[in-house]
Simulated assay, not measured.
Amino acid sequence: MSRNVFRRVVERRGLPHRLTPVVFAFYMSAIMAFLMCLVITAANSGIGPGYIDSAWRAYKLAMPVAFVCVLIVRPVVVRLVTLTIERNQE
């Protein structure tokens, strides 16, 4: 592979910038849903045999729901942050 071809491959890796909100929603929902499933499963059933399996079953339901929710709620949160933070930084 010539140097120019390699350089183009390296520079083009990743998704287009316009997908930033979707990628953000995916990572945020994946991490938060996982952590919440671990905590809620532990609170409801305790940490014992089958804990990881129970948390995983909950996560398989929670992750897609969380992803859609973050996509919907993100613009509202951005607006609320804009309204909450001072405009002038002096």
Rank of each mutant, 00 (worst) to 15 (best):
M1T: 11
M1K: 06
F6L: 15
F6P: 04
R7P: 00
R7A: 13
R8A: 15
R8E: 14
R8H: 14
V9M: 03
V9P: 05
V9W: 13
V10F: 13
R12S: 02
R13A: 12
G14V: 07
G14N: 10
P16F: 01
H17V: 11
R18D: 09
R18L: 00
L19C: 12
T20V: 05
T20K: 05
P21Q: 06
A25L: 05
A25M: 08
Y27G: 09
M28N: 09
M28L: 15
S29C: 03
S29V: 03
A30N: 06
I31S: 02
M32P: 07
M32V: 14
A33W: 04
F34G: 09
L35T: 07
L35C: 08
C37W: 06
C37K: 10
L38A: 03
T41F: 08
A42T: 05
A43I: 00
N44Q: 15
N44E: 15
S45A: 08
S45I: 02
G46H: 11
G46A: 11
I47P: 02
G48I: 09
G48P: 07
P49T: 03
Y51T: 09
Y51N: 10
Y51K: 11
Y51C: 08
I52N: 07
I52E: 04
D53W: 03
S54V: 06
A55R: 13
A55V: 06
R57C: 05
Y59Q: 04
Y59W: 15
Y59D: 01
L61P: 00
L61K: 09
A62V: 04
A62N: 14
A62K: 01
A62Q: 07
M63Y: 13
P64L: 00
P64T: 03
V65M: 01
A66D: 05
V68Y: 04
V68L: 09
C69E: 06
V70R: 07
V70I: 15
L71Q: 12
L71G: 07
L71E: 12
L71V: 08
I72A: 12
P75S: 02
V76D: 10
V77H: 02
V77T: 10
V77G: 01
R79S: 15
V81L: 04
T82Y: 14
T84C: 15
T84M: 14
I85W: 13
R87W: 06
N88Y: 14
N88A: 14
N88S: 13
N88M: 11
Q89R: 15
E90D: 14
